[in-house]
Simulated assay, not measured.
Amino acid sequence: MPFTEADARTSLSAACEEAGIGIGSADLIRIGSNAVFRVDSNVIGRVAPDLQGWDNAERQIQVARWLE
């Protein structure tokens, strides 16, 4: 089953709602193995098609926070 922008937006919307972030009109930056959205000027949302990359995603978030 192909990974579509609509699927990614549904997941992004649910994640933003859970985090208390308004999704507004998130702009799709790219879609490939993951979908990347600009939610607002301070938030980028990355949506994977499944949970296989969970460990890698957590590591990338930790590095981004460290760099911040």
Rank of each mutant, 00 (worst) to 15 (best):
D50A: 14
G45R: 05
E18P: 08
F37K: 04
S11K: 08
V63E: 08
S13P: 01
W66C: 01
A35W: 02
A14W: 02
R9S: 14
V63T: 15
I23T: 05
V36A: 11
I21G: 06
N34M: 02
N56T: 15
L28M: 11
I23E: 04
N34A: 13
T10Y: 01
I23M: 01
Q62S: 14
S13K: 10
R38E: 12
V36I: 02
E68P: 07
A35G: 13
D7Y: 11
D40W: 00
V47D: 10
A15H: 08
A15D: 02
I44V: 13
G45L: 02
S33T: 15
R46A: 12
D27K: 01
C16T: 14
I44D: 06
V63Y: 14
L12H: 00
A26F: 03
G20C: 12
E68W: 15
A19T: 07
V36Q: 07
G24E: 00
P49F: 08
A15N: 07
I21N: 00
R46H: 06
E58I: 06
V43R: 05
V43E: 05
I31M: 07
D50M: 05
C16W: 11
R38S: 01
A6K: 06
A26N: 05
T10L: 03
Q62R: 10
A19C: 10
S25R: 00
I21Q: 00
F37A: 00
I44F: 10
R38H: 00
R9Y: 04
V47S: 11
T10D: 07
R9T: 08
A35M: 11
L28Q: 06
P2E: 14
G53V: 15
R46N: 11
R9E: 07
L28V: 07
G32E: 12
S33V: 08
A48N: 03
I31Q: 09
A8P: 03
D55G: 15
I21M: 11
G53P: 02
V47C: 08
E17G: 15
A8N: 07
S25D: 04
W54Y: 11
G20S: 07
G32A: 12
V36W: 03
E68M: 14
L67I: 10
S41E: 15
F3G: 06
L67S: 02
M1D: 13
A26I: 04
A48H: 13
F3R: 05
I44R: 03
R38D: 10
F37E: 02
E68Y: 12
E58K: 08
S33L: 15
T4G: 05
R38M: 09
E58W: 15
E5G: 09
I29T: 05
V63K: 13
S25I: 01
G20D: 04
E68Q: 13
G53L: 09
D55E: 13
S33I: 07
E18K: 09
A19K: 08
I44L: 05
P49R: 10
T10K: 03
A48Q: 11
P49Q: 13
R46K: 15
A6V: 10
E17K: 12
I23C: 10
P2S: 06
R38G: 00
V47K: 05
R46W: 06
V47E: 00
D40L: 00
N42K: 09
A57D: 05
A19Y: 15
L67W: 10
L12V: 05
V47I: 10
R38L: 12
E5C: 04
G32C: 11
G32Y: 06
D40R: 00
S41V: 06
L28E: 03
N42Q: 14
A8C: 07
R30Y: 09
A35H: 00
G20N: 02
A15L: 12
